[in-house]
Every structure is written in structure tokens, then in C-alpha cells.
Amino acid sequence: MSSEQPTRRDFIYVASAAFAGVGAAAAAWPLIDEMNPDASVLALASIEVDLSPIDTGQSITIQWRGKPVFVRHRTREEIAEAESVPLDDLPDPQPDEDRIQRPEWLVMIGSCTHLGCVPLGQKGDFDGWFCPCHGSHYDTSGRIRKGPAPSNLEIPPYQFVSENRIRIG
């Protein structure tokens, strides 16, 4: 056999290196995965909100999974404004009806999609929310209109459990 040909010894080198590599990766995984959200964090994943005390034009902010969630009882004008915007004007086009279950209730995560600050309500150029951190403007449907944020404020999963109660998560 010429020295160019792989030998049984080469096979052993490659096999043991591969084995050690797989072993090291397997051993590293628990050390990496340990940093992911743990069971107690995941257990906090759902919360119920009573809507009855929130009048038209009022909003509340609650904490869900460590993040603020805005629950806004929209006025008629706000709803009309959100519905009338042509989709072409939106950086992240989405009709208002895809963002709500009932037009008067807007429920969304109050965390700017830029770098996570909490936008201020009923501020900015579009009567919705304004993020002071780097100047993102959102409209009355929480859609991004102007500024560095790449996408609309996120809608959390929620459902109406009764006429006046929702469960988020």
C-alpha cells in the first residue's frame, strides 16, 4: 500500500476525533440549554384580565411574561383612523382587522419592535404610540409608521373567556 492511501490508522484517527467531537457537543448542550427560559418562567405564561373597568379612551398596562401588554379601549375615531389607512402607507402592511378580535379592544405587547423600550400611549405623529428611545411612531392599531422599528407592535395570543374577560397566553 502506498503512503497516499488511507490506512486503518487514519480511520482510527478520524473515528476518534469524530467521536470526541460528538461527545463534546453532547456534553456542552446542557450547559447551553440551561440558560434558556426555565420551567418556572414558562409556567407564568398565561394571565386573565377583567376589561369592565376600562372605559372608552382608556388603556391599562399589565405585565405578561415580564413584558408590558397594552389593553386599549379604542374610541370610535381611533378605530375609523386605523381602518382607513391604505396598506401601501405601511412599512409592515397589515389590515387593522387582522390585529384585533373586537374593534374596540386593542391588545398588544407594549415593547417597541426596535430595541424593546415601552412606547408612550396617545403620542406621536399618528395618534397611537411613540417610542422615545429612538423615535418610532405607531398608529392607533399599533402599526409602525415612522422610525427605526422594523415591524408592528406584536399581538399576544389571547381569547375572550367571557363578555368582559380575556385570557392572555
Partner: peptide, 11 residues
């Protein structure tokens, strides 16, 4: 993964 949660928090 960096946060150990869905926002900056205790972890």
C-alpha cells in the same frame, strides 16, 4: 436565551 426569559429579569 440571553435573558433566560421573555424579557430582562431575574435570570
Amino acid at each position: 436565551w440571553l435573558w433566560g426569559g421573555f424579557a430582562v429579569g431575574n435570570p
